[in-house]
Design a protein around this nucleic acid. Structure first.
Lengths: 202, 202
DNA sequence: TGACCATTCGAACGTTCGTTCGGATAACAT
DNA sequence: ATGTTATCCGAACGAACGTTCGAATGGTCA
C-alpha cells in the first residue's frame, strides 16, 4: 500500500495523539501537548486535522473499523458456535493488547464526542455488539443458557474492555494466555449446566 | 444522626455534583455548571469546597468508604466461600444500582485526581481489590481453579463496573436479577471442572 | 443595641484553551 | 524562471476556565 507523505504524517499524528489521549485523557490533553509530542507546531497540526474532536473521531473510527474487520476475518470458515465465540474473544484480546492506546481511547472516551461524530462511532459499536450477541445466541441455541444473552454479552465486553485499567501485555500473562483464561471463564460460565447460585433471587 | 446546616448543604452539593460529573464527565463539567444545577452562586460553592478537585475527591472517598463498609457487613457471619463470593457480588451490584452516579464517577474518573488525593482513593481501592482476591482464593482453595486468581478478580470487576455504560436499574432486569446472573456466570465459570476451551494456547 | 461569625454573591483576575490569520518556505509542474 | 500548490509556523484572538476579592446579608449571643 503506497502512502503519500500527507497520509504518513497524518497517521503519525493520530498514533501519537492516541498515546497521549490514553495517558492523560482526551479533555485534559491540549493541542499544545500534541504539538510538543509530535514535534510539530501548534498551527501546523491543523494542516492535517480540522480540530481536536475530529482527531479523536478519526482515531476511534480507524480503530473500530480494524476491530470489526479483524473479528470478521477471525470467524471466517469456522462453524462451531463455541469455537466461533472463542475466536472472537481471542481476537478482541490480542487486538487490544497490540493497540492498547487506541483501544483505551475507544473504551474510555466513548462519550467525549457528540453529534454526527458520536453517531458514526455508535453505529460501528452497534454492529460489533450485535456480532457478539449473535455468537452468544448461537452457543446458547441448542438447549438454552441460564443467563440472559444481552447480559452475558455486556458482561463479556466489560470483562474484556476493563483490561485497560490493569493489564500489561508485556507482563507475566501473555495476551494469548489472557484470552484463554477469559474464554474458559466465560464459556464455562455460560454453558455450565451445574448448580444454580447459592441464593435464589434472579 | 443530627446534621448541621453546613453538612446538609455540603452533602447536597456533593450529590448534585456527582450526578453532573456522571452525566458529562468531570473535566467538561465547569464550576458554573454546578452553580446552575445547585442554584448556588459560583463563589458561594467555595464556602463548602476548596476547589473542583476536592469536590471530586470527597465524592469518591465517601462512595468508596460506603462500598467497603457495606461489603464487609454483607460478608459478616457467612463462612461458605461460594456464598461469601455471591454476597460480595450481590452487594456490589445492588449498591452500584442504588448509587449509579457516584459509582460511575468512581469507576470512570479513577485517573482524574493526582497527588495525595489520588493516593488516598487508590489505598481504598487496594483494600477492596484485596478483599475480592481473598474471596476468590477461598473459593478456589480446595482443588484449585483453572483460572488465575488475579485475572479472575479483574475479570469480575470489569464485568461489574462496566455496567455504568449500559445498565438501567429501572429497566427490565432488576439489580437482584443482574446480581444473580453475574453470580451464575462467574461462579460457574470459575469452578467448572469441565472441558478446557476449544483451542489450546493459555 | 452592638459585636461576631457564618453564609452568600456580583464582579473581576490571571491563565489557558482551541482555533485562526497572514505570511514564509519547499516542492514541483510548465 | 515562473506560477501553483503543499507544507509549515510565530503570533495573536476571543472565549471559557478555576479561583479570589470585597462587600453585603442574616442569624446568634452578650
Amino acid at each position: 500500500m503506497v502512502m503519500s507523505t500527507f497520509d504518513t504524517r497524518l497517521e503519525r499524528l493520530q498514533t501519537i495523539a492516541a498515546r497521549v489521549f490514553a495517558e492523560k485523557g482526551y479533555h485534559p490533553t491540549t493541542m499544545r501537548d500534541l504539538a510538543r509530542e509530535t514535534g510539530m507546531s501548534l498551527a501546523g497540526m491543523y494542516h492535517y486535522v480540522s480540530g481536536k474532536d475530529e482527531l479523536l473521531h478519526s482515531i476511534q473510527r480507524r480503530c473500530f473499523t480494524e476491530v470489526l474487520q479483524g473479528a470478521e476475518a477471525a470467524l471466517a470458515e469456522v462453524s462451531d458456535p463455541s469455537e466461533r465465540l472463542e475466536r472472537f474473544i481471542r481476537h478482541h484480546i490480542t487486538f487490544f493488547a497490540r493497540h492498547m492506546s487506541e483501544m483505551k481511547v475507544l473504551s474510555h472516551e466513548a462519550e467525549s464526542l457528540s453529534g454526527d461524530r458520536l453517531a458514526t462511532i455508535n453505529a460501528l459499536k452497534r454492529r460489533y455488539v450485535a456480532m457478539l450477541s449473535r455468537l452468544i445466541g448461537d452457543v446458547c441455541d441448542p438447549d438454552g443458557c441460564e443467563v440472559d444473552e444481552n447480559v452475558a454479552s455486556y458482561a463479556l465486553f466489560g470483562m474484556m474492555n476493563w483490561i485497560y485499567t490493569w493489564y500489561d501485555p508485556a507482563g507475566a500473562v501473555s495476551p494469548q494466555a489472557l484470552a484463554g483464561q477469559f474464554t474458559r471463564l466465560f464459556l464455562n460460565g455460560l454453558t455450565a449446566s451445574t448448580a444454580a447460585p447459592v441464593t435464589p433471587g434472579g
